[in-house]
Design a protein around this nucleic acid. Sequence first.
DNA 1: TTGTACGCGTTATCAC
DNA 2: GTGATAACGCGTACAA
Lengths: 346, 346
Amino acid sequence: MKYEAVTIKDIAKALGLSTSTVSRALRDSYEISPETKKIVIEYAQQINYRPNPIALSLKEKRSRSIGIIVCEIANSFFSQAINGIESIAYDKGYNVIIAQSHESYEREILNLQYLASRSIDGLLISVSSETENLDHLINLHKRGFPIVFFDRVVENLDTHKVGVDNYKGAYDATSELIKNGHQNIAMLAGSEFLSITKERVAGYHQALTDHKIAFDASQIEYCLHGGMNYQEVENALGSLLANNNKPSAVIASADKLTTNCLRYFKSKDLEVPNDIAMIGFSNLDLTDLLSPSLSVIRQPAYEIGQVAIELLIKQIENKRPTTEFEKIILPPQMIIRESSGAKKAR
Amino acid sequence: MKYEAVTIKDIAKALGLSTSTVSRALRDSYEISPETKKIVIEYAQQINYRPNPIALSLKEKRSRSIGIIVCEIANSFFSQAINGIESIAYDKGYNVIIAQSHESYEREILNLQYLASRSIDGLLISVSSETENLDHLINLHKRGFPIVFFDRVVENLDTHKVGVDNYKGAYDATSELIKNGHQNIAMLAGSEFLSITKERVAGYHQALTDHKIAFDASQIEYCLHGGMNYQEVENALGSLLANNNKPSAVIASADKLTTNCLRYFKSKDLEVPNDIAMIGFSNLDLTDLLSPSLSVIRQPAYEIGQVAIELLIKQIENKRPTTEFEKIILPPQMIIRESSGAKKAR
DNA sequence: TTGTACGCGTTATCAC
DNA sequence: GTGATAACGCGTACAA
C-alpha cells in the first residue's frame, strides 16, 4: 500500500494554474500577485501540501541529512553525544541517520558504504575499536566529503576533530589513586588502535612518573573490543591480578570496561575499595547508585556532540572547500566517590 | 564544498553508449550483449559508481527508510529495541531514522511531521507519556501510511502492535513481594495516559485481590513523565511514604522510575530491602551491580524491536492495503535479586 | 542489441 | 503576473 502525497501539480490542476506559478506562490515570490498567492497558499494548507524532500534533494544535490557512526548507542557516552548532535541538527533542519559498528571494523565499512549511498551530506564518526586501516574514510575525505571525528579521533586524517582531554583525565585519575596511597596501579585499557587509548595510557604513565612510581608495562592490559564482551575483561583482569606486582587499584579507561571491571571484582568477592580500588571513565548516570559508588572520569558527551555537529554543518554549508581544520579538546570532569578510596590498612 | 558523485551519464559518455544501455547493463538485463555488459560493469566498478538513491526514491516513490520515534534512546529498553529493529532493517535494505520525543507530546508531533516530510516508508512508534490525543497518528493511518506501535501501544488505532505482557509482569512482581511478607505495597506508576501503565496497575490490583489484600488507590502515584525528571519521582514517593497506610514495598513500573526510586531511597537513608523493599521494571544491564542488587521485571526489548520491524516491513511491501492487524504480546521475565527481599522483623 | 523519450516533484530560466 | 521548459539521476516502454 502506497501513501500518495499531494504535489504541486495537484494544486496547479485544481486551481487552473501552472506548476511554476504555484511553486512561486508558495515560496512567496515577488512576481506573483497577492490574490493568486492567497488562493494558492490557502488551498495548499487546506489539502496539507508538503514539498517532497526527495525531489528537492535530487535538484539541490543535498539531502539535508547527516550520518553518525558510533560503536553502540546503548553506551551512555554515545547516547548523550547523539542527544547533543540531534539538538543542533534538528534546529538547523538536518536529519540524522545513526548506524552502529558494534566495535567491528567490517561493520563500520558496511555502514559507511550504506550511509554514503544514502547520500548523506556529511559524517560524524567515532571509529570502532578495531579500526586501524583508514582507507575507507580517506577515500571519501579526498573527494571532499565532510567528515568530523568525535571522541575517538584519528591521527592521520586532516579533518575537524572534537574530543576530550584524555591525557588529563587519566592523569587526574591516577594522581587521585596515588594520593589515596596506592602505589601499584593497573590500567585496564581499551583498544591499542585508538588514539584515546594511547592518550589515556600516556596520562597514566606521566602521573606515575611525576609521583616517582616506576612504570611497569605489564600492568597494562588492552581490550580490543573495549569491554564489549565480558570475557575480554575477565581475561585482562585475570592476568593483571596474577601479576607479581599485584595492583591495589585499577583504572578502567572506558564505559564498558568500568562496569565490567566492577562486575568482575564482585564475582571474585573482591571488596572495592578495600581489597582493590578503582576509578573509571564512565558517563553512566547511575554510577552513584552502584555498590560501591564509583569514582569516575566523566566526559562532556552532550557538548562534544554539539560542537561536532556545528563544525560539520559549517563545513557542509561552506561554499569553498575547507582547508583549515580545527581540533577541539574539552576538559573531562573527575567525580570522586567511594571506589577510589584509600588502601586498606593491614 | 559539494561531493560530486559519478552518474550513469558519465559512464555512458565515457563509453560512447546511451544511458539506457548502461542502466540495463548494470541491472544485468537480458537484452544487453555480454560484451557490452562486461565493459560497462568493469568501468562502473573502476570509477566506483553507485546508483543515486535519491533519484531512485523519486522514481519509485519509496525511500527505503523507516522512522522510529521513542522517548529517549538513552533508555536501556529503547536502545535495545532499536538494536533489534536495526538488525532486521539493515538486512532488508532499510534505513532507520531515529527521533526522540523526550516524553513531550509537542515534540512527538514535530518529529512526526519531520519524519513524514522526509518521506519515510513507515513508522515505528512508542508514544510519549504525554500523548493522549492521537489525531496526528490517526490522520496518517487513515491515508494508508504504515504504522506499527511497539511497547507503548495505543488502543483506539487499528494497526500492528507489539508489546509485552504488562499485566503479567506487574502481577508477578506484586505476588513476589506478597510472598516475601509485604502487605502494604505501593505502586510508582508511569503516565496515566499510557495503556502499559493501566495494564501494569491492573496486574498489581489483581495480584492484591487474589491474595486477599485490600486495594488502596492512594497507594498509587502516577508520574506523567515516567520518571524523566527526578523531581517528579521525589514528589510521588514523598506522598506514598507519607500515607497513613505506609508501604513496606514499592513497585516501580518503568526504567527511569526504578532507578530514580532507588536514588530516592538512598537519599533518605532508607535501606533496601530492610526499610523498604522494591522491584521494578527495568532493562538496564547493570541492575545486578546496584546496591542492593535490584529485582526486576525485564522486557524482551530486542525481540520486540525485531517483531515490530518485521510487521512494518511486511505491511510496507504488501501490494494491497493491510486490513488485518496483529497484536503480539511477548512474555516478560522476572529476575529476583536482593531488593525485593523479606520484610524486616522488628 | 541499442537508443530515444518520458516521468518521478521541484525550481530556475526564459518567454509572453 | 503567469506559463512553458529544462534539469537533477534513474529505469523503462517504445522505437529502430
